[in-house]
């Protein structure tokens, strides 16, 4: 089956098997390997991307279901000139990542969370990221990163 998506601003058309998951389409067929796979029970959130602006665990969706959609992955977050997105910057400044495996999913989940709730409390951030697991950071600095990004946006 042929599917067409706008991925990080560019139109992409590929043939896919009906059973191909969106995450495998993004990684294997489009070659954007920043989106990671950490489980097979939609528990970890490492595969989180934006589909039409909403954060979605891309292992829970078939590529064909995303036909015609606009997708954003971690590779689309920094500006084309390489300037980090404010959330990416906040993650670096607050040491919100260690091994970095959960990080693309965390950043994507956090960015859609902040779009919905630009001025969250600590507890709201924790609940907003509940579907994303990290084994390295103990979440402390991830939560700090998201709060810092929220404050920065608030100041702009």
């Amino acid at each position: 089956m042929e599917v067409t998506m706008i991925i990080n601003g560019s139109s992409v058309t590929r043939d896919v098997e009906p059973r191909t998951l969106l995450v495998h389409f993004i990684r294997d067929q489009v070659g954007l390997t920043g989106t990671n796979v950490g489980c097979d029970t939609s528990s970890c959130g490492a595969c989180t991307v934006h589909v039409n602006g909403e954060s979605v665990k891309s292992c829970t969706m078939l590529a064909v279901q995303a036909d015609g959609a606009e997708i954003k992955t971690i590779e689309g977050m920094a500006s084309p000139s390489g300037e980090l997105h404010p959330l990416q910057r906040a993650f670096q400044e607050n040491h919100g990542l260690q091994c970095g495996y959960c990080t693309p999913g965390m950043v994507m989940a956090a960015s859609s969370f902040l779009a919905e709730n630009p001025h969250p409390t600590e507890q709201e951030v924790r609940h907003g990221l509940e579907g994303n697991l990290c084994r390295c950071t103990g979440y402390h600095n991830i939560v700090k990163s998201v709060l810092a990004a929220a404050n920065e946006t608030a100041e702009v």
Partner: peptide, 21 residues
């Protein structure tokens, strides 16, 4: 000091084993 490792991990540029083509 902020980590040197971070930009490539934060942008999806870093390659984990399963990312290798």
């Amino acid at each position: 000091m902020l980590r040197k490792e971070d930009p490539s991990l934060l942008t999806g540029e870093s390659k984990f084993s399963d990312d290798l083509v």
